[in-house]
Amino acid sequence: MNLNELYQEVILDHGRKPRNFRLLPMATHTAEGHNPLCGDQIHLMLSVRNGTIEEATFDGCGCAISTASASLMTEAIKGQKVEDAEVLFRQFQEAIVANGDTEPLGVLECLIGVKEYPTRVKCATLAWHALRAALESEEKSATISTETGEVIPHA
C-alpha cells in the first residue's frame, strides 16, 4: 500500500470540496462526533421523514480522511431508508476492520484503504459513528467519541 492508494483522487476531491457541507436548520436528528486524540469534530445533521433520510449534511473540521468520509457518507445515505443506512453502517464498519472479502461498497470502497493505517481508521469511521448515534438516540442530539464509541444523549 502506498500513499497514493490512501489519498486517492476521490478522497482528495471530497476532502477539498466536501459535499453537503452546510447547516441543516430543519434537522430532526443531529450528532456531534469527536476524536479527542486529534481534535477532529464532525457535526452531522439529518432530516428524517416517514423512515427516510431526506437530507444529510455536516460541518466541523477534520483531516482529509474524516472530511471525505463524512462527505461520501452523506451522499450515500441521502434518500435511503433508515434501516438501509443502518445496514450500510454495519457493512462499512465490517469492511474497514475485516481481513477478508466483504460486501462491495461502491464509491465508498475508496475509504477502505485506511485499514492499512491503523492510526487513521478512526478518522474514516468518525462520521459513521455519528450517523449511528444520531439515528439511535432517543434525543434530538447526541455526542459520540472515538475513544468510547458510546452514545451519550444530551440532557
Binding site: 480522511i65 472530511t67 493505517y117 492510526t119 487513521r120
Partner: peptide, 13 residues
C-alpha cells in the same frame, strides 16, 4: 494544503 493529521501520516511513510 493539508490537515496536520494527514501530514503526520505522510511524514510517517
Amino acid at each position: 494544503f493539508a490537515h496536520p493529521h494527514d501530514l503526520g501520516t505522510i511524514f510517517d511513510q
